[in-house]
Design a protein around this nucleic acid. Structure first.
Lengths: 180, 180, 180, 180
DNA sequence: CATGAATGAGTTTTCATTCAT
DNA sequence: AATGAATGAAAACTCATTCAT
């Protein structure tokens, strides 16, 4: 069920409930039995994604090398999110309308990333003039950007390098071409 | 006509043709006389925006200080685009579906930005391991990100700093807090 | 079961089977085990009501004062029916579509009321130019009317007086203000 | 348009918009262009009926023989209303929910009937212990009753006689068999 | 040319009914 | 026997598009 729903999400938030149901191999009614509203279904799917993301972040929270963990995380987040257009859309929508059920998960993510981000700052791995909100927004924008160049891994790597270098403290050794 | 249409665009690509027509002070029929399809109207509006952008870029093409001109351009592009959600959506869609009429303008923009970008690279103002495509994608993502933090100018400035710093050559002096 | 179903009926004939089942504390499937169709369930509920009504009427059939018994009956019928919108709806539907299972009960009621009605006519308590069908229709209409003025007992009494007076034989002493 | 819509109304308030549109020979969209909601369409149809009724009543307002005019009116009202199931349903709903657009027309009808009713009372043609509200409710109930016996004119006449007789003052000469 | 009424396919949502467990 | 998840037809409503005036 959930798996099929995610298939829906990849089609964007405009797919019709009929299509989703069809893709999931069930009738529309079944969808509505589980989610009272299209909105609810959407929120559920997105929340689930974000939840998984949170799990990952929380795992890295106490890594011995926060800086490395942080950059690894970004890499993975963008890599994964790129395949899920909906996650991106949702992240942006969540920022605008935090009243939904997504709000709670969003806060969890915010806290988890914030913790790792703070530790990474302390070790001097990232610049310290940036807030978590701004970081998350940047990440989201980067995901959007990634969807453009689609499958070109080399191009993606070059773009990530820009973001990574920009996140380093001004005085730190550059990161650039060393990655991937 | 064009002016009113842009007003539509700010409402997102979901506004109905009736609303657009109403805002433009004409009947729907008139809209269809000029644009065979909603899609066509959308493309026209977006193309227009991109066209203006091209003009700007082409003006800067032969600037005496390509590096400064380049960063100025980025700043202005992001600043403007942020107010036009549709432009961003369109840019992303254009990347995915270059068959549309946007394609041509996209190429023009590509060429214009490419020229300035190349000169900026030569002067050592920007890293040289990045393609124009990647740059444009990054810019678009940044615009998306900007829409998040909405009106917070300080936050926007910090985010731009990240991008700008990331674009500098690894060895260049950092740009950071010096801006805005 | 029956008790819960009646609870449903008071919500009008538009309540969903799921709601009925829920109110009855059973699953929908169970409902369908006992009644092949929503229509059938509805008929069953209504038939039950009419059946109770029949019992009452039949009790009065041999009353020593048929006239008084008749008017008492009317009073009670209207009083009760007013609280059961569904009964009224059903009665009207029954008149239109007598093919249903309600038909039989309807006939029983028809016969029972008819008997008392005839005896009341003989004692000169009611006009004799009215058929049982017409009487029942009038009653039903009166019930509908009663639902309008809702809880205003005084208004209801005045309306009943009109009906009662109209039912008296032309030459009989008027009934009017003597009631309630 | 209006004519076709009334055709709809005769099918009860449950007919689908598609059916109404079909009966009217137009597309659903056309219906929605004129009436934003099914509810609105319904209100419009009913209001129209009530409005016509009002016109009739207001014509009779200053009749030389208020009593005769009053009974004529009742006769005609019931006769007409009987063919319009919807009017009846609507009247009842209007009583319950006077917030709708029907409210205004309802008041107009109330006033017009009230005026004639008052004059008829003064000439001793009707009992004076009945309010206009009660009269209207009774009328509506009578209409409902009439729909039962459907086309049987004789039966209808007998039922009307009951109502008419009930409305006479207790001491007045009975009306009964003299009508129709 | 401009207009906006008409169209009808498509979207979300509800609900009577069935059937595997 | 009971359950309630699944089904899909149908209803209200929207909107891109056409076309008579």
């Amino acid at each position: 069920m959930r798996a099929a729903d995610e298939a829906f999400a990849s089609g964007g938030p405009t797919v019709s409930m009929d299509e989703i149901a069809g893709a999931a191999g069930v009738g529309v009614g079944t969808l509505y039995r589980h989610f009272p509203t299209k909105e609810a279904l959407f929120v559920a799917v997105v929340s689930h994604h974000l939840s998984l993301l949170c799990d990952e972040v929380e795992t890295l929270r106490d890594a011995s090398d926060p800086g490395a963990a942080f950059y690894d995380l970004l890499d993975r987040m963008v890599q994964e999110a790129t395949d899920k257009r909906d996650l991106i859309d949702a992240l942006s929508r969540a920022g605008i309308d935090p009243s939904d059920g997504v709000g709670e998960v969003k806060e969890r993510l915010h806290a988890a990333v914030g913790a790792l981000f703070a530790r990474a700052k302390q070790t001097g791995a990232v610049r310290d003039d940036l807030g978590v909100d701004e970081l998350l927004s940047l990440l989201m924008g980067t995901c959007t950007a990634m969807c453009q160049v689609d499958a070109d891994q080399a191009a993606r790597a070059r773009m990530m390098a820009v973001i990574f270098d920009g996140l380093r403290p001004p005085t730190a050794p550059r990161h650039s071409a060393s990655r991937r």
